[in-house]
Design a protein around this nucleic acid. Structure first.
Lengths: 127, 127, 127, 127
DNA sequence: GTGGTCTAGACCACG
DNA sequence: GTGGTCTAGACCACA
């Protein structure tokens, strides 16, 4: 977690969890650390962790119970995405790719890098 | 331009300009509307447009002169990206793709959509 | 800070911070006053201070977080400059030195004064 | 003259003239092109050139008469600078050098580059 | 309590 | 007529 980055900490935490799920490091049913625990580990306020978990819950990636804390609710194998999500997501993808293209990244280079990222998820999640 | 969105207006404006450049709708040398003009068109304060333009200038995409206003300084054909940019960009790409994968978008589906977006840029910019 | 000067206030603020870093009065990790605080101290609007800090961030000299405000991110000891920066900078140096020479400052005098300034940075930063 | 630069055109014109004097390309008594002529050559309004000449006159580098137009009034050999000028100039020098140092240019490197610029003036002006 | 965003209006610099 | 600067005040996001 890079405390001196422009993206808010709670978003960074969410992003790391999301990537861990995509990587297969976190699978359906796995428990996340308690907010206080993770907050202590990262050196941030547990409210900040709370906010990140809240976001993940809102997206349906985890569920939060008083008893067992935060648990991964879905991963890459848990079934297809919600209808409509893909299109909304592609809008954001389009914005991100446009930036790279406009700034001079070759179209082929962009494709290659997309493929590389996807492969990194596939490779780690498959076995 | 969606004023009721969570992303700041000035970022939305920047994103639209970046996409227009990637699409080829804006090419090197083209003029952008004046800040006051675009502000009036969008129903936002010209300072907000100013901030968007300032960001675009900081990224090297446009140049701003008092005389001719904002002019596109580089497009997809203007030469390679800054060294190091691609890697920084890929970090953000990884985060975005991870979200899709975690939420159940098939890896192949992700690849296909990346390719589709890239092609849309290539198709419009090429001819 | 001279409010009745031709150089914009926000640039004067930036310059003072840059000089403080070069002098070693501000070192990596040091905090800058909050924008509202410094604004009040200087008798200027906090937006003006904000603009100065924004410039410093764009140059990589400080980082800004909502929590801890503005913090010095690099000083003279933080490693080499960006490639290409030195040449761009030398262009500006050439313009400034040319003025002194044209107005009758002896070439030796110019050299001596350059050395004196550099030494003042070295002396204060070294111990 | 770089029309798409952040520095105002009239300042760029002034800077080029100042450098030409420091370089010895323009010597005391030499004539500058008429404002309309130079404006046409550079593709800018002659009022803009006028403003540049006005600045040069204010600094005492040229004199302007209706009859002979703008003429170089002093160059590097025309005698010592005005008292007090050197100190005011050094303030600006300090700001510029501080930036380089803060951004990681080595103190020795700065000294070397200062010397290189001074030498370039000496070499061209001497013979 | 910190910075971020947005609005609003004034005046100036540039060309 | 263009952008640049500065002021001012409001509300929100973050920690």
């Amino acid at each position: 977690m890079d405390l001196d980055r422009e993206t808010p900490i709670y978003l960074q935490i969410r992003d790391r969890v999301v990537e861990a799920i995509a990587d297969g490091d976190l699978a359906e049913g796995d428990s996340l650390p308690s907010t206080r625990q993770l907050g202590a580990d990262l050196g941030v306020n547990f409210h900040t962790v709370n906010k990140a978990y809240d976001l993940l819950r809102a997206q349906g990636l985890i569920r939060i119970t008083r008893k067992s804390g935060a648990v991964v609710r879905r991963d890459a194998r848990s079934g297809p995405a919600e209808p409509g999500y893909a299109d909304e997501w592609q809008e954001r993808l389009r914005t991100l790719l446009a930036e790279a293209v406009a700034l001079g990244l070759d179209a082929d280079e962009v494709t290659v890098r997309c493929a590389a990222v996807v492969e990194s998820f596939r490779a780690k999640a498959a076995p």
